[in-house]
Amino acid sequence: RKESAFKSMLKQAAPPIELDAVWEDIRERFVKEPAFEDITLESERKRIFKDFMHVLEHEC
């Protein structure tokens, strides 16, 4: 699924995404990734990013 691929892309980011990361600041790192391009709505990208950050916070 496209959403899973997007989350995997975020999870495998190098360097890892920090807990205090803001979408607008890290977005540039992913613009050339196929998983990024597959999610065409920016609002959807932000939503998935927020979900990812929520999970990340609870893993720590």
Rank of each mutant, 00 (worst) to 15 (best):
R1T: 15
R1N: 04
R1V: 13
R1A: 07
R1F: 10
R1P: 15
K2I: 06
K2C: 01
K2W: 04
K2F: 09
K2N: 02
E3S: 03
E3L: 03
E3T: 05
E3K: 04
E3A: 07
S4L: 15
S4P: 05
S4G: 14
S4Y: 15
S4R: 14
S4F: 15
A5T: 15
A5D: 15
A5G: 12
A5H: 15
A5K: 15
A5Q: 15
A5P: 04
A5R: 15
A5V: 12
A5N: 15
A5C: 15
F6Q: 01
F6A: 01
F6T: 00
F6L: 02
F6H: 00
F6G: 01
F6S: 02
F6W: 01
F6Y: 03
K7T: 09
K7R: 07
K7I: 10
K7C: 09
K7P: 01
K7M: 09
K7Y: 07
K7E: 06
K7V: 10
K7W: 09
S8W: 12
S8N: 15
S8I: 13
S8V: 14
S8C: 15
S8M: 14
S8R: 13
S8P: 01
M9F: 01
M9Y: 01
M9E: 01
M9P: 00
M9K: 01
M9N: 00
M9A: 02
L10R: 01
L10G: 01
L10I: 04
L10F: 03
L10Y: 02
K11D: 11
K11W: 11
K11T: 11
K11E: 12
K11I: 07
K11S: 14
K11N: 09
Q12C: 07
Q12N: 08
Q12W: 04
Q12M: 09
Q12F: 07
Q12T: 12
Q12R: 06
A13D: 00
A13V: 06
A13M: 05
A13H: 04
A13W: 03
A13I: 06
A14T: 12
A14W: 07
A14N: 13
A14Q: 15
A14H: 14
A14Y: 08
A14P: 00
A14S: 14
P15D: 05
P15G: 03
P15M: 05
P15Q: 06
P15V: 05
P15W: 03
P15I: 05
P16M: 12
P16I: 04
P16T: 08
P16Y: 03
P16W: 03
P16A: 11
P16L: 05
P16Q: 07
P16S: 10
I17W: 02
I17G: 00
I17C: 02
I17N: 01
E18P: 10
E18S: 14
E18A: 14
E18I: 08
L19A: 12
L19I: 12
L19D: 10
L19K: 15
L19P: 11
D20Q: 06
D20A: 11
D20V: 05
A21T: 14
A21G: 05
A21V: 10
A21I: 04
A21K: 04
A21F: 04
A21P: 02
A21H: 05
A21Q: 08
A21E: 09
V22L: 08
V22N: 08
V22Q: 10
V22D: 10
V22F: 04
V22M: 09
W23V: 02
W23E: 01
W23H: 03
W23T: 02
W23I: 00
W23S: 01
W23R: 01
E24F: 03
E24Y: 04
E24H: 03
E24S: 08
E24N: 06
E24C: 07
E24V: 05
E24W: 03
D25H: 14
D25V: 10
D25R: 08
D25F: 04
D25W: 03
I26N: 06
R27P: 00
R27V: 03
R27E: 04
R27K: 05
R27Y: 00
R27G: 03
R27C: 05
R27I: 01
R27F: 05
E28Q: 15
E28P: 11
E28N: 15
E28H: 14
R29E: 03
R29Q: 12
R29T: 07
R29K: 07
R29P: 02
R29Y: 06
R29C: 04
R29H: 03
R29L: 07
R29G: 05
R29F: 04
F30Q: 01
F30T: 01
F30V: 03
F30G: 02
F30D: 00
F30H: 02
F30M: 03
V31T: 09
V31R: 12
V31I: 07
V31C: 09
V31Y: 07
V31D: 06
V31L: 10
V31K: 13
V31F: 12
V31S: 09
K32V: 07
K32Q: 12
K32I: 05
K32D: 09
K32P: 05
K32C: 14
K32E: 07
E33H: 07
E33I: 06
E33F: 13
E33W: 05
E33D: 15
P34F: 06
P34H: 06
P34R: 14
P34Q: 12
P34A: 10
P34K: 12
A35P: 07
A35E: 12
A35S: 09
A35T: 05
A35H: 04
A35K: 04
F36V: 01
F36W: 05
F36C: 05
F36M: 06
F36A: 01
F36R: 01
F36G: 01
E37K: 14
E37W: 08
E37Y: 11
E37F: 05
D38H: 10
D38N: 13
D38I: 06
D38C: 14
D38Q: 08
D38Y: 06
I39T: 02
I39M: 07
I39G: 01
T40V: 15
T40C: 10
T40D: 15
T40Q: 11
T40I: 12
L41W: 08
L41M: 09
L41R: 14
L41A: 12
L41E: 14
S43T: 07
S43C: 06
S43E: 10
S43D: 08
S43F: 09
S43H: 04
E44P: 02
E44M: 05
E44S: 06
E44V: 05
R45I: 00
R45N: 02
R45V: 00
R45C: 00
R45M: 02
K46S: 09
K46A: 11
K46P: 00
K46I: 15
K46L: 06
K46R: 13
R47H: 06
R47A: 12
R47C: 04
R47D: 08
R47I: 10
R47F: 05
I48D: 02
I48N: 03
I48H: 08
I48A: 04
F49M: 03
F49E: 00
F49N: 06
F49D: 02
K50V: 10
K50M: 09
K50F: 10
K50H: 13
K50E: 13
K50P: 00
K50G: 12
K50Y: 10
K50C: 14
K50Q: 08
D51M: 05
D51K: 08
D51F: 02
D51E: 13
D51A: 10
D51S: 09
M53W: 02
M53K: 12
M53S: 04
M53L: 13
M53H: 04
M53G: 03
M53T: 09
M53D: 02
H54M: 13
H54Y: 07
H54V: 14
V55T: 15
V55P: 12
V55W: 11
V55D: 13
V55G: 12
L56R: 12
L56P: 10
L56N: 12
E57V: 10
E57K: 13
E57R: 11
E57S: 11
E57W: 08
E57L: 07
H58Q: 14
H58D: 14
H58E: 14
H58N: 11
H58A: 12
H58V: 10
E59Y: 05
E59H: 07
E59S: 09
E59A: 07
E59C: 11
E59V: 06
E59Q: 14
C60H: 10
C60N: 03
C60M: 07
C60K: 03
C60L: 09
C60S: 12
C60W: 15
C60D: 14
